[in-house]
Amino acid sequence: MNARDTVLARLRAALAGAPPTVPVPPGEHRRQGDLPPGHPELVDLLEHRLTDYRAEVHRVAEAAVADTIAGILTAAGAAAVVVPPGLPTEWRPGPVEVVVDDDLPADRLAGLDGVVTAAAVAVAETGTIVLDAAADQGRRVISLLPDLHVCVVRPDQVVATVPEAVARLTPGRPLTWISGPSATSDIELNRVEGVHGPRRLHVVLTDG
C-alpha cells in the first residue's frame, strides 16, 4: 500500500462501527446581522472597530477620494506608491509618483513607500477588510511589502458579520483578511502594532 492508501485505510478502520453520519443541524448562529449591507450605522461601526485596532479612517465623498489619498501620502512623507492596474484612475493621487504594478519584483516593491488598493468586502463587527486580488486590488504581494497601505471601501461593500463576508467572497481566489495594521501579541500577550506587514493602515470610507 502507498501512504495515501494506508492513511485512508487507517481512517476508515478507525471509523468502522461508528454510527452512520448524521447531517449537521443548521444551527442557530447568526448568518447575518440586524442591519443590511451599507447601512450608515454599519459604516459607523466599521469605522469604530478599525480605529480601535489602530487603523486610521477617513470618511469622505466619492469625489474627494484622490485628494484624501494624496493628503494621507503627503502627510506620511510617501514619495512613490504602487497601485494595482485596475485601480480606478480617478482615485490616483496627483502629487506623488504612482507606479502601476506590472509584475514588479519584490525588491522594487519593498522600496516603495505605500500602496493604494480597493477592497472586496468589509466586516463591520470585526473591523476587517478583505482583499480578493481583483484588478482593483492586485497581487497579494503589493499590499504586503510597502509600509503604508491605503484601502478604499465603498458603503455597499460593508456587511455586518463574518458569515456575510464569507458568502460574498469567491472561493478559489487568493484572499487576505486584514484587521488593522500588522501586530503581535507575542510579548506578554499585549497587542502591539507593527511587525512585518504594513505598519500603517489607512481606510478611506466613501459615501457611495
Binding site: G27, H29, R31, R49, Y53, V123, E125, T126, G127, T128, R140, T161, V162, P163, A165, V166, A167, P171, G172, R173, P174, L175, T176, W177, I178, S179, G180, P181, S182, A183, S185, L189, R191, G197
Partner: peptide, 24 residues
Amino acid sequence: GVFLQLLPRASTGERMNPYTSMWT
C-alpha cells in the same frame, strides 16, 4: 464563517486577528 469568528476571540482575544490568508 463559524470558525473565523470562534478562533480569534478565543485565542488572542481579538475580534479578528490582523491577517488571515487563504489560497487555493
